[in-house]
Design a protein around this nucleic acid. Structure first.
Length: 706
DNA sequence: CAGGAGACCT
């Protein structure tokens, strides 16, 4: 009788706790907890205690949850794993890892649940090393083919930039589901391998993957990177017509996709149609306006956000607002918001990035001395971005003294960035200090590492045409080049003067001009002119920042041919109409816009290599296979790098033909929500699936692991 | 009783 009563009491506790967990009520949970303390010796009852841990975690009482674990007289894998999971989910990575170690020391063997959980905490700075150790451990326990463990593992590698290791784990999985497929697709997308992400999505779809809203969100990330509007609309259509419920995450990525494809009207439509919004929805919309240089809209939307008062602005919100004010000519408003922030009006402290925005804002407004003072009074050590911003402003507004100071700071802390040398040497040249200019150029040859080759693309009739300074693969490249020569002559007559200071190399002027004309966005523009009908707008996407010379070129182009030019570069949109650009001509970076693939070889006489900071990948050009030795030494020196085969030639990508879901380019919204397809809509769609006859994921393209 | 993927920003 007594025993039975005891058991039924435990059952009631269990039921009560379950109820509290599902309702998320701490108070009642605490009452149950207190009752348990009084009536039974529960710390030895593992599952009841574990329920308590979950309850407290759900109510954000992490310390209480931990206290329950610490006071347990008997613990098993489940209770340890529950607590580790609490820490990982709330973002306390080091606590999670410490607890994992503590668990091992206590002699408890981890199981597949533990591994799947703890690996999600290995994404911090020292995470890869730990993750590797855990991977070895996983191999010993032969959980590596477990789907959940495998997904965590591959995600861990992808987040550390080791996409090939991630791919290897994925390939070895005996079974796959949406989550593991999404993890690998999003791995590619997040590292900027957008075409690869797309190709993989398509391949997995053929193999029977049933995507869910997370998969589509990841796919949209890749499409945003490519500015593939038409495909983005296909995804939107598909989502609306299929039974995928509307998730905020997915709507947020739609807002972002439309804005990065140049179609803010659609972004706003999605934003307005949402019944519920998260901070990220607001951020995505604000960032969109900011990148398009629409300062007034940024401020208006920010005011609306504060009026609604549902979502608190966070760090990224202020980043968007401040840079929007800077790019959109609302300097005073930006400063006002920054100082309100400092006063604590919004409950968010300004961080380094916000200070950087203010420096940019002051520099843009020609308030150089003020910007310099601002930097000196900052509570942070200035970053390269801050000095770079100031140096750029000094170049534009010809302030030699402060510019030289900023430049010297930069060369010290960021010696591998070519742009710094170029801007500083230009500053010396404009002050007539030729000796200093030469010294800087010499210095550059020793230290510079070229980062990423430039490329530009333009979509015409659903075909994506890519131009690349050192690539010869586009079938109409010669035609485009001939047209470009013609434009150059014509524009010079109209007053265009090539800005030779945009060239890195120490060659004669004629050579410099040639190099400038080789910049990929000029080729894309020239091609746009011959391949589109008269008067239609031309949209070009560029993976780096546009240089001053190409910017001037595009302005004259728009004026002479009466074409609207929309150019998305690394940081923002330039909308050029009648020779006037929406950016207000503030090109503080006098960077060469398109560094040829082999420029490092030209500069240093050494093998060409670049690494992409985003993906931490080293890449080599196929024409220069002699670089293998250097490759090995680079890899040996720097553990966290992946080695890549170069991307396949992207000269011309064929259209999709029958599109993914069989409705090519159908309007993404139902008739009733259909925005007008009038003058504002120009398909930018890029049919990017695959390169003819070649899969980027083929075995021949897989690098050797280990 | 515990577990894997995701949107904004660098």
């Amino acid at each position: 009788m007594a025993i039975q009563g005891h058991e039924s009491k435990l059952d009631s506790y269990n039921a009560l706790l379950n109820e509290c967990v599902s309702q998320g009520t701490v108070k009642e949970g605490q009452t149950v907890h207190a009752h348990m303390i009084k009536t039974c010796y529960f710390p030895s009852l593992v599952y009841l205690s574990t329920r308590l841990i979950v309850l407290y975690a759900k109510c954000d009482c992490l310390d209480d949850a931990r206290k329950v674990l610490d006071e347990m007289t008997l613990r098993n894998v489940v209770s340890w794993t529950a607590m580790i999971s609490v820490y990982s989910q709330k973002g306390y990575a080091s606590e999670a890892l410490n607890l994992f170690v503590q668990m091992l020391r206590s002699g408890t063997e981890p199981n597949e649940f533990t591994f799947a959980t703890v690996l999600t905490s290995c994404t911090c700075s020292s995470g890869l090393e730990l993750g590797r150790q855990i991977h070895s451990f996983v191999l010993k326990t032969s959980f590596e083919s477990h789907m959940f463990v495998g997904s965590s593992l591959l995600d861990m590698y992808a987040k550390a930039g080791r996409i090939h290791d991630a791919r290897q784990v994925f390939t070895c999985l005996p079974e796959r589901d949406v989550v593991s497929c999404t993890a690998i697709i999003s791995g590619y997308a997040q590292l900027g391998f957008d075409e690869e992400a797309l190709e993989l999505f398509r391949q997995l779809l053929r193999e029977g993957m049933v995507p869910n809203h997370v998969t589509y969100a990841s796919l949209l990330t890749a499409l945003s990177g490519l500015a593939a509007l038409d495909l983005g609309r296909q995804v939107h259509s598909h989502v609306l017509r299929s039974k995928v419920p509307t998730f905020i995450v997915l709507q947020n990525s739609l807002i972002d996709m439309y804005s990065k494809c140049g179609n803010l009207a659609y972004s706003r439509r999605v934003f307005d149609s949402m019944t519920e919004r998260s901070v990220i929805s607001w951020n995505a919309m604000l960032v969109g306006y900011s990148k398009h240089g629409m300062g007034r809209e940024v401020v208006e939307l920010f005011d609306l956000m504060r009026k609604e008062n549902k979502e608190k602005p966070v760090s990224v919100t202020f980043l968007a607002v401040l840079s929007g004010c800077s790019h959109g000519g609302m300097e005073d408003k930006g400063l006002e918001i920054f100082y309100e922030m400092k006063k604590g009006t919004y409950g968010a402290e300004p961080e380094m990035v916000h200070y950087a925005c203010v420096v940019d804002l002051l520099g843009r407004a020609s308030r150089i001395n003020e910007a310099f003072e601002f930097i000196n009074k900052m509570p942070f050590v200035p970053t390269p971005a801050i000095w770079g911003s100031l140096l750029g402003a000094c170049r534009v507004h010809s302030n030699f003294e402060i510019g030289e100071f900023a430049g010297r700071q930069l060369l010290e802390i960021e010696p591998e960035n070519a742009g710094n040398y170029v801007v500083l040497s230009n500053l010396y040249a404009s002050a007539g200090r030729w000796e200093d200019m030469r010294t800087i150029r010499e210095l550059m040859k020793e230290k510079v590492v070229i980062k990423e080759p430039g490329r530009s693309w333009i979509e015409i009739d659903q075909i994506l045409h890519t131009f690349h300074a050192s690539e010869r693969s586009h079938p109409r490249r010669e035609e485009a080049k001939t047209k470009l020569m013609e434009l150059s002559t014509k524009f010079k007559e109209a007053g265009y003067v090539p800005n030779l200071s945009c060239v890195l190399f120490d060659v004669d002027e004629e050579q410099k001009e040639k190099i400038l004309l080789n910049h990929s966005e000029k080729l894309a523009l020239a091609f746009g002119l011959i391949a589109t009908s008269e008067g239609s707008p031309i949209r070009v996407i560029k993976n780096l920042r546009i240089c001053v010379d190409c910017h001037n070129f595009a302005k004259i182009f728009s004026k002479i041919y009466g074409r609207e030019v929309s150019l998305r570069d690394k940081t923002r949109f330039h909308r050029i109409v009648g020779g006037i650009c929406s950016c207000g001509d503030y090109c503080r970076a006098l960077l060469p816009s398109s560094l040829p693939f082999f420029s490092r070889a030209l500069l240093t006489g050494r093998a060409p290599a670049f690494f992409s900071p985003k993906s931490r990948a080293v890449c080599f050009s196929p024409e220069h296979l002699l670089s293998l030795e250097l490759l090995r030494s680079l890899v040996a020196q720097s553990a966290p790098f992946s080695v890549f085969e170069p991307r396949p030639p992207l000269g011309l990508i064929q259209p999709l033909g029958a599109s993914l879901w069989g409705w090519p380019g159908r309007p993404p919204m139902g008739i009733e929500n259909q925005p007008p397809m009038g003058a504002d809509y120009q398909p930018l769609g890029a049919s990017l699936w695959g390169w003819p006859g070649r899969s980027p994921m083929g075995a021949e393209n897989q690098p050797q692991l280990g």
